[in-house]
Nucleic acid binder design. Structure first.
Length: 128
DNA sequence: ACGCTGACTATTA
DNA sequence: CTAATAGCCAGCG
């Protein structure tokens, strides 16, 4: 892969307004690849990046996804139980469920129905 | 600079 | 099955 060593250490800094080529961008790319009407989990994304234990950072990355373009379908990312744990971080909590249902995903009491069937595993689908 | 928090998960009891 | 605990690491007071 083309490496850009502008410094002796890996860049994790955030130069004023400039996007960083860290973990965060990788998360966004994977989330954008989630097919419509499917969902995935934070842990699955973290695992695809090789940082299974850092599932929390995936959620944190989602938090940054708001000011990233193109739009990141963060509503397709739920926790491992299929619960819409991140719904309260959207513009308004019901938005996440609305978007999912619009894509054909059934949700009852913040729980994705047929979660295992709709689950899209990036590790498996991307062949990692 | 230190400590707490958090859109999580795997492990253990 | 549920409940409690540890690990994870970037941001914020």
């Amino acid at each position: 892969m083309p490496l850009k060593k502008s410094s002796d250490k890996i860049s994790r800094v955030k130069p004023s307004g400039l996007k960083d080529d860290s973990f965060f961008d990788l998360v966004f790319e994977i989330v954008r690849q989630v097919p419509k009407g499917r969902v995935t989990s934070y842990g699955a994304i973290a695992a695809a990046l090789g940082t299974r234990s850092s599932a929390r950072m995936v959620g944190w990355a989602m938090n940054s996804s708001h000011h990233v373009s193109p739009t990141v379908p963060a509503h397709r990312v739920v926790n491992r139980k299929g619960l819409l744990s991140g719904k309260m971080h959207f513009a308004y909590p019901e938005q996440m469920q609305e978007l999912l249902e619009k894509e054909g995903v059934k949700i009852i009491d913040d729980q994705v129905q047929d979660f295992e069937k709709l689950f899209w595993d990036p590790v498996k689908e991307l062949g990692l």
